[in-house]
């Protein structure tokens, strides 16, 4: 039986309201218990915290009002929408084992295997950080601003792991004269990115299917390499190869700027973050957090290495901020 649009929207809105409550009320209450010296393994509240984190996401994607079945029932129309998208796909795409072994974010089939996966992911990403709400795009605008402070007028930009193009968009909208290249493994996401860029009238952006750890770009061919929420999706050896690839394609003196999640040393923050890693099917968050990135970047030949907290929305870095958030971090360096 198909689900009508109103019921789908109401079901998703309910789940988002639950997630918002979890973010604003349940998380601070768990933190209070932790700070009071309570063993969280024995805390009923923490058990519900964990349950909600995992299963609200499951319902969001897979339930009766889930993103996957709702989009699947519109499959024909959605595939038609992508028919004319201009995108360079690999003749024989090779997907690494780490990429296909788990369904990332609890998205059934992952972001790559279903032709409509880009639509599902795009819709899901709108409510990933509930408190950012409709202003979620701010996050990408903010990273673009931060990147352009480090590298003011790039003529060639590479967005690694560009997904459905949300992170690429503020670059091609801000830098009208620059050539912007977005690469990703997911054909369904690239098609959506290309469709949206064409709709926005962007002329100098290309979307290409490629493993960002092994691109076909010439040495020293970019002024800026960026990524958003990419590094935590890869095992450490691939993170290393990706950063080495960024170094190879950057011109001497040019910069790379990555936005990702790195918890600080606080044990509670690490417990919450590593737990999220498991509960949300993102197993490489924890290994990334355990990597010695400054040492790695130095070894790869980078300089001006900076690893700094990122303010994804106003006020989130204030000491009194209590709601759950990702430990957003900007990792930047120059070749």
């Amino acid at each position: 039986m198909s689900i009508d649009g109103r019921s789908f929207a109401a079901g998703q809105a309910f789940l988002l309201s639950c997630k918002t409550y979890w973010t604003r009320v349940v998380y601070p209450a768990v933190r209070e218990e932790y700070q009071a010296g309570r063993n969280l393994e024995e805390s009923v509240l923490y058990q519900y915290y964990c349950w909600l984190e995992r299963h609200l996401q499951r319902f969001k994607y897979s339930g009766r009002y889930g993103l996957q079945p709702y989009h699947a029932q519109q499959r024909q129309r959605l595939e038609q929408e992508l028919r004319d998208a201009e995108v360079e796909l690999a003749a024989k795409p090779e997907y690494p084992d780490y990429y296909t072994r788990i369904d990332i974010h609890q998205h059934p089939g992952g972001v790559w295997s279903d032709p409509i996966a880009g639509f599902v992911y795009e819709r899901g990403a709108r409510s990933t950080t509930p408190l950012a709400g409709g202003r979620h795009r701010d996050l990408h605008d903010r990273l673009t601003e931060a990147a352009l402070e480090i590298c003011s007028k790039p003529s060639r930009v590479l967005d690694m792991g560009c997904g459905f193009g949300k992170s690429t968009r503020p670059f091609y909208e801000t830098l009208k004269d620059a050539e912007v290249e977005g690469v990703d493994l997911s054909a369904p996401c690239l098609r959506l990115a290309a469709r949206d860029a064409a709709a926005a009238g962007a002329k100098r952006v290309r979307f290409r299917q490629m493993d960002c750890a092994r691109t076909d770009y010439a040495d020293a061919s970019f002024d800026l390499v960026t990524s958003t929420m990419l590094l935590h999706e890869m095992p450490p050896e691939v993170v290393e190869r990706t950063l080495a690839e960024a170094h190879r394609v950057l011109r001497p003196g040019a910069a790379m700027v990555h936005l990702d999640f790195l918890p600080g040393d606080d044990p509670f923050e690490r417990l919450i973050h590593f737990g999220h890693s498991k509960r949300n099917n993102e197993p490489f968050m924890e290994p990334l957090a355990r990597m010695d990135l400054p040492a790695l970047l130095k070894k790869l030949g980078f300089r001006d290495i900076r690893i700094e907290p990122f303010e994804e929305a106003d006020g989130v870095l204030e000491p009194g901020y209590r709601s759950w958030r990702f430990p957003w971090t900007v990792i930047s360096a120059r070749r």
């Binding site: 109401a10 309910f14 009002y65």
Partner: peptide
């Protein structure tokens, strides 16, 4: 774990119905 899933599924249905009734 499983029973709470049933509770949340029913709660979602309740909200979907309330939303439709209001509309």
């Amino acid at each position: 774990d499983r029973a709470f899933g049933v509770v949340m599924a029913l709660a979602t249905e309740v909200w979907v119905l309330r939303d439709r009734l209001a509309a």
